[in-house]
Design a protein around this nucleic acid. Structure first.
Lengths: 245, 245
DNA sequence: TGTGCTTGTGTGGTTAGACCACACTCTAGG
DNA sequence: CCTAGAGTGTGGTCTAACCACACAAGCACA
């Protein structure tokens, strides 16, 4: 653990020292969202470590969606503190899926769980629902598969955000991202995209209607069936040979 | 040189090149769990990049819980492919909590959601439940606070694993880790640790009994009350001063 | 024969210094 | 006033060296 003071001067690697320093700056509020880290060379000198070690620490923070490194000078330059946990978690999950340690079916199941909960908790007056409705209108006008899928992602994310739990919507987004490659490939398995798209559109409307009606239970049932139905149709069931008679 | 052209046209940084190469090796099965990456110097030569860039890529993989770097020679040496997504996700979540982008209350709420689902899905004959029972016995014999908390973590994780969804139990573990520091600090807020510990013990037994009885609904209710009760007692409610009359 | 020390080799960990590409800022010349 | 060029500060990359570590092989000695 980076914040472990016992290892502080014992077996801690240099870049971990830098990490713990930065984490402390964050916790103490000396580094805030949108703020800039000291320049790599300055930070290296200040912490009396090499620039290499500073860079390794920054790479880790970047991988975790905590900072963004920009070259040049001016507003987009330097290393800036951001907050994009979803992309970071998504990358990590995707890599673990690649090692086959995390089954895709489990990810889908988790997504169903989180999204069902989210729509059942969404308040009917949440501003995200208006955005969701707008996205559905846009989907009606977008026949292209790619556009449809991009809007679909945005719609489901808007639904998740309507529940007001940042962690849930973040994890939702990262799960989605982790299997995005799979989902895109699965689309090719569909027997008839046009009819599938038509069905998905009406299911989206039904889900949104249920949320707007304040009927969380119905919304949860519909969204679960919506997601599971899609993956089943595309040939990715949850353990199709499961011994559950 | 050669890599500069690639960088220019693909706008990909060198260490990302290394990352994508490694991810491909994982996807293609050329790198498996427990396997070893080529040595840093060899990999650098093979990919025609500097060792620096290889190291930055490895740092990222390490931060994601995908590899472990070990010095020396022999069995624990070299960079080995592992699968520890929980620690990686936990670190990322903890850092984002530090930036106050992810509220602790949301994390607790998510944990309740996942763990409720897990116990409601756990099969009564899951082998993890025997481990959970053993942990409870051990807790009865461990008066020290630290031991109790460590066993508590293991118990809840065992429960989550009994549901058979790796993603859910992994996220559960990472959520727990992200707020571990908070939880430990909160213990100090408790008015009377001994009575709290006694209550937690009996609640644990009740939860495990419900799971063993195959009563998932009761188990879910109990575990939700168990977790929420603890954090409430320790003074961490869900938005206690929320301006929502 | 066996034991213990020394040396060799391969691994990641760390450092210093140099150069590049980039984006903005300043300044001198028109 | 405007513009082209020099200046400055940023991250990105590379090279070359050294260190600490852990094991393996071989040698020296009892």
């Amino acid at each position: 653990m980076w914040s472990n003071h016992i290892n502080y001067y014992l077996s801690m690697r240099t870049h971990e020292l830098v990490l713990s320093w930065i984490e402390k700056q964050l916790s103490d509020g000396h580094l805030v969202l949108g703020g800039r880290l000291p320049a790599e060379r300055a930070l290296a000198e200040q912490l009396e470590v090499s620039r290499t070690s500073v860079r390794e620490a920054i790479r880790i923070l970047e991988a975790m969606g905590l900072v963004r490194a920009g070259v040049g000078s001016g507003k987009d330059a330097g290393t800036v503190v951001i907050a994009e946990p979803a992309t970071a978690l998504g990358s990590a999950l995707r890599l673990h899926v690649a090692t086959q340690h995390l089954p895709v079916a489990d990810i889908v199941e988790t997504r169903v769980l989180l999204e069902s909960w989210a729509v059942s908790r969404a308040k009917a007056d949440a501003p995200e629902l208006e955005e969701a409705a707008r996205l559905l209108d846009e989907m009606d006008a977008s026949p292209a598969v790619d556009d449809f899928l991009a809007l679909d992602v945005a719609f489901h994310l808007a639904l998740a955000e309507a529940a007001g739990n940042t962690v849930v919507s973040t994890i939702m987004g990262s799960l989605r991202e982790a299997i995005e490659g799979y989902a895109a490939a699965l689309t090719a398995n569909l027997p008839d995209w046009d009819s599938t798209a038509h069905r998905l559109r009406s299911e989206h409307r039904a889900i949104l209607d249920a949320v707007n009606d304040g009927d969380g239970g119905r919304a949860a049932t519909l969204v679960a069936a919506h997601i599971e139905g899609y993956y089943r149709e595309a040939g990715l069931g949850k353990a199709p040979v499961e011994t559950r008679p």
